[in-house]
């Protein structure tokens, strides 16, 4: 076993996480789980930023990941408020049933 793994392994881990997030977003029908998949994708991107920050020995990657985190927190607040409102109006969390904009 090597003493240390190359940086590309971290990036592959990030890619795996991102793909799982995409999978969750496409396959799940529960709006909360879909939202969590988006958070998963954002986390994957953050991992890449931090890994590149390490590679380039610069703090900028950390800063960018920090901004992503802040935006994700703001998004979660608004998104969950929207989910609450939708549930109050439609009494369902299934995205297939929230389709009145289609017609």
């Amino acid at each position: 076993m090597p003493a240390a793994v190359p940086l590309s392994w971290y990036l592959v881990l990030s890619a795996v996480l991102f793909s799982l997030g995409v999978a969750g977003f496409f396959f799940r029908r529960n709006i909360i789980t879909m939202f969590m998949s988006i958070e998963l994708m954002l986390n994957a991107v953050n991992l890449s930023f931090v890994a590149f920050s390490f590679q380039l020995k610069q703090v900028s990657g950390n800063i960018f990941a920090f901004f992503v985190m802040v935006v994700a927190a703001a998004e979660a607040a608004v998104g969950l408020a929207i989910i609450l409102t939708v549930f109050k109006n439609r009494a369902t969390l299934n995205v297939d049933r929230i389709d009145s904009m289609k017609y």
Binding site: P2, A3, A4, V5, P6, L7, S8, W9, Y10, L11, V50, A51, S53, F54, Q55, K57, Q58, V59, N62
Partner: peptide, 16 residues
């Protein structure tokens, strides 16, 4: 693209 990246050792980067 990143085949030539060095190994990641704890403590190499302390700027965070």
């Amino acid at each position: 693209l990143f085949s030539d990246t060095g190994p990641v050792r704890f403590g190499d980067f302390k700027g965070g």
